[in-house]
Design a protein around this nucleic acid. Structure first.
Lengths: 242, 242
DNA sequence: GGCCCACCTTGCGCTGGCGCAACAAGAATG
DNA sequence: CATTCTTGTTGCGCCAGCGCAAGGTGGGCC
């Protein structure tokens, strides 16, 4: 599964400081500090569908997604996948240390071709101690993700499948949407199967639901591609009382 | 809802140091440090069914549960409750700061009569900076809870109602079980409704399921009381392939 | 002791969504 | 450009679990 094409920064030209300038965990730092951090980083490109790290393995590195998208997944004993989160570029991931863990709690798979920086986990304490705002911002990230998980639990406990799919789509276009002529498109390849793994249903039901919405002009979709043309209507659907 | 009976430590005798001696976030501290921490704490007793703090309110204090049980709940716009977690004694809660938040993300309700210490949130940074192990241990707590939430998402996405109820029961007896003659009893009052709010189903289905298990001798239950007599069998049920 | 209220049980009919199955339509590969 | 693979669509039958409704039971309170 792992792809052979990769580049370590040690052999490549120095990374540009602008990469981290506007990224929350590093935004309070001055140019010298960012230089230090970049010099310690490895940079690497990942093909689509490749695992960056896997659930249960030693958390020996933590990551910062520069470009692309990451899907955080868990596999049941029975082999079914569940998608826990999507991570857009500009965010840290694989930060087991922030949760007091020594192994990764889930698997990270690229949803599109991606580029990520990474550092050895032993630098984590150094980062939190020396770099102003790093700790605070990472805990905010954790907090946001916890909030998202919480919301999903509520949705799964109380909502109908149709509402859950609507909510999942809305979350995706909020986090990773790209404006196009006909609406907002999800900016990485996503299958019905993926959506079903995000909402705890089957690809059949997702397919049927999207077909129905397409007929109503709410969405336009094709192979691995979904465009929401009427977000407002989708919000109404998502909040519809049972 | 809030109960009138309460005691602030400031007016009561000094709290005993043994209270925090074996509690993970404080276990590495010496007697002098524990004294300092206790002198800053307020202690208070809560009746069963009382809200300690509420979702969305300013996170002005953080808490340590000395005795009793806490239910962490969220309410949907439609008014339905979902139980996110149970917190047993000896754990911190209301630690919005550890998630970079300024408001509580959920409501904490006592599941039984409880006693908790609390400190103003402005002391949080002081605690994490000065007290060895405090930060590490609290992030472990966060990590554990994130793991639990994650597991619940997986269960809700992939398992049948019966398995989810079995898993919820097993989690409860692991965290808060008390050995009795006929098995392991959940150590605080719990209704079918509560279980349904933990598993995303209805009290009817929970009632039917428990009745069936009772006939098979797996559990014994009464009003607000559940005893698991055959945990092993329950584990088999929880893991049963669809 | 008797009333009331909160909690629990159970029967019955209905339906949302699943599982199966067969097929369609691009994309990728040689 | 033929073949194969992956992804998406749709019809159909079925059933787990829900909603409704009616009734039971134990505890707390006047």
């Amino acid at each position: 599964m792992q792809n052979a094409v990769m580049t370590r920064s040690r052999t490549a030209p120095r990374l540009d400081e602008s990469l981290l300038n506007n990224v929350p965990p590093f935004s309070k730092l001055d140019s010298r500090q960012i230089r230090e951090i970049l010099d310690l980083a490895s940079s690497r490109r990942y093909d689509e569908g490749v695992a960056v790290f896997e659930e249960g393995h030693d958390a020996d590195r933590f990551y910062m997604l520069l470009d692309g998208y990451i899907r955080v997944v868990r596999i049941t004993p029975g082999g079914e996948q569940v998608i826990a989160l999507h991570i857009p570029s500009g965010q840290l991931f694989g930060i087991a240390r922030a949760l007091g863990r020594t192994t990764y709690p889930a698997t990270a798979i690229t949803a599109a071709e991606s580029i990520a920086l990474s550092w050895p986990t032993r630098l984590w304490d150094q980062f939190t101690a020396h770099y102003d705002g790093f700790a605070t911002e990472t805990y905010k990230t954790v907090g946001t993700r916890v909030g998202e998980m919480n919301t999903r639990i509520m949705e799964m406990a109380t909502q109908q499948v149709e509402q859950r799919i609507a909510n999942a789509l809305l979350r995706l276009i909020n986090q990773t949407g790209r404006k196009v002529a006909t609406g907002i498109e999800i900016d990485f390849p996503i299958t019905r199967q993926d959506l079903s793994e995000m909402t705890g249903t089957t690809l059949h039901t997702v397919s049927r639901t999207l077909s129905a919405w397409e007929k109503q002009g709410l969405v336009a979709s094709g192979r691995k591609r979904i465009t929401v043309s009427d977000p407002h209507q989708l919000v109404l659907l998502a909040n519809a009382a049972r």
